[in-house]
Amino acid sequence: MTVPVIPIEHVLALAAALFVMGLVGVLVRRNVIFLLMSLEIMMNACGLAFIAAGAKWGQPDGQIMFMLILALAAAEVAVALGLVLQLERRFDSLDIDTAGEMSG
């Protein structure tokens, strides 16, 4: 099977664009669900950058890093969604700023 030769800076630029979009989401949205989605976007962008690097050298390491990111994302989502449920129960709100009273 043949795959095209792609300029690596284009892939990385895409990854960067996706990353900053995720970041905008984190900064703007107050709803925790959206916040988490934005985080997923950012992590996914990182994964894309790793895959691109792996593709540049034709080595499997990039994909392995992506898989580790995947494991991290799965773990993070599991815990974070549990926290979301607790937040909803405790504060009856999904506003991330209501958790601000936990500052110390």
């Binding site: 099977m1 043949t2 795959v3 095209p4 030769v5 792609i6 300029p7 690596i8 800076e9 892939v11 990385l12 691109a52 792996g54 593709a55 540049k56 050298w57 034709g58 080595q59 499997p60 994909q63």
Partner: peptide, 9 residues
């Protein structure tokens, strides 16, 4: 950084 190899891993 150049381009990808165009090879499948």
């Amino acid at each position: 950084p150049g381009t990808t190899r165009g090879a499948v891993v």
